[in-house]
């Protein structure tokens, strides 16, 4: 599916990276612990998280991820938005909580 499909499935708002919505993605992970993302994730291209700080973008950058989705209605700061834009990473936010957001994407074919 594309990042735009994810946006529609999660009723999400795109915060930055509108020009990258056609990017194809096949797998995702959900975590609030960046240490674990760095330890256990392999080739996942989408990160769902309720953690909002610039290290989320840094972690996604290190892992070659292309899209970050902030769950539970979390609002990224200007600093986070600018960093993601500079790194070519799509930022989205959804009011859904982590579990349903992951469930919806899994049901739609995204894998872990």
């Amino acid at each position: 599916m594309t990042i735009n499909d994810i946006k529609n499935l999660l009723n999400a708002t795109v915060v930055s990276g509108h020009q990258l919505l056609d990017t194809e993605v096949h797998n995702a992970c959900g975590s609030d612990m960046m240490s674990d993302v760095l330890a256990f994730v392999k080739d996942q291209s989408v990160l769902l998280t309720g953690l909002v700080n610039s290290q989320v973008v840094r972690t996604a950058e290190m892992m070659d991820m292309v899209c970050i989705i902030f769950v539970r209605g979390k609002e990224p700061s200007e600093e986070i938005i600018n960093l993601a834009a500079d790194r070519g990473i799509v930022l989205m936010k959804t009011s859904l909580r982590m579990f349903p957001a992951c469930g919806i994407l899994y049901q739609a074919g995204l894998r872990g």
């Binding site: 609030d32 960046m34 240490s35 760095l38 330890a39 998280t49 290290q55 972690t59």
Partner: peptide, 15 residues
């Protein structure tokens, strides 16, 4: 609270 300190830093570096 910032998403680190899970005790994975040095093990990750080694890994």
């Amino acid at each position: 609270a910032l998403g680190f300190g899970a005790g994975m830093g040095l093990p990750n570096i080694r890994k």
